[in-house]
Design a protein around this nucleic acid. Sequence first.
DNA 1: TAGATTGTTAATCGATTAACAATC
DNA 2: TAGATTGTTAATCGATTAACAATC
Lengths: 215, 215
Amino acid sequence: MKKQAKISNAVIKRLPRYRRYLKELRKKGVDKISSNEFSTLIGYTASQIRQDLNNFGGFGQQGYGYSVDGLYHEISAILGLDKQYKMVVVGAGNLGQAIVNHTYYYKSGFIVSAIFEVNPKLIGLRINDIEVMDYENIVEYVEENEIDIGIICTTMDAAQEVADKLCFAGVKGLWNFAPVDIETPGHVAIENVHLTDSLYSLAYHINGAQEHNKK
Amino acid sequence: MKKQAKISNAVIKRLPRYRRYLKELRKKGVDKISSNEFSTLIGYTASQIRQDLNNFGGFGQQGYGYSVDGLYHEISAILGLDKQYKMVVVGAGNLGQAIVNHTYYYKSGFIVSAIFEVNPKLIGLRINDIEVMDYENIVEYVEENEIDIGIICTTMDAAQEVADKLCFAGVKGLWNFAPVDIETPGHVAIENVHLTDSLYSLAYHINGAQEHNKK
DNA sequence: TAGATTGTTAATCGATTAACAATC
DNA sequence: TAGATTGTTAATCGATTAACAATC
């Protein structure tokens, strides 16, 4: 088995977008699409689309294009969306609750199996029919239930310690919403979502662009 | 006034991170920092730090380094965080509510002044002391109150129409959480936050990397 | 002044785009 | 077969890193 060259993160970050557009096309009953047609729709160059897809294999057919349904399933498989993931949320605040609901609605393969909290007033409650458990028991739970993903919705201060515990307990990935950059051992994937940073870059674009001239 | 070269989005996206680290340093009472020390801390090369900052002006002092407090304020100003922003949230579901709370806690300059909904059961309620209003009245409200930012927490189907209305009513930027790519006229800034895409790229990193060999 | 560290130019690296041969 | 469109190599572009002169 030939070792494949590492695929750049820029490519990976485009895959979910390809998939979204393919899903829509599929819903509309479109059978095939050429890289040129796809380019017009999605806003990447046709060249980039072909390059991106060819990182994973030749999914198209010369003279014809790409099968919408076929490509949709290929990309889903590449992303690992043909598998199931067991997740725990840490922090039952507003954001934690929203994530529970959000994923509940949209992501069939991503199952939130428990929520962990330190606040005794919240422990024992059910959010979206998922139990809020005592943070004390998190390691035991994650180990026993073979949890894949930990979702960190804690304060900034607690985040790294929570991450360390989750990694120790054996999760394969962390989805971090706390406003710090979480560090994980090399074998644990990490996706930092910095909502505040996102809002700040929006603020820049609203008014910053023309005001900061050098000299 | 010399026209400045356009600053790449890669640079802009790093600014909030610089600011976060500077804020921490400031809290710890650190007065000055060299690009080398900052590099160790933040994980960018010293060269990149100096390049990034010099897009906006010479904030450092040769032989000394950068003033933590000074740089913190400079970056804040570049991002436009010395200004206030009036915002409306569209969609009072879980995500909308979480955003209201989230920004309420963290962002002093970003004020949510109303939430808009189509569901009559929610209209009239108060979330975090902010009124939930009828979506029917959104254009009038945004115009009269000179709202700067619209936050879209609707379904995929409604998102673009909501965006169009907000742009028509005069917002300067949109923060979109619906899982579609929103289009705006050139003068309206747009920041798409695709949480689902983020989760999917995490899934890829959990298991995808080694399984998709070509041929 | 000597040492340190920036600001800035030059070199390198990586990602995107263009071109075209392969092939359906 | 001829036309279309991919897969892939080559060219370009932009972003990052290295090097060093300027200067505090």
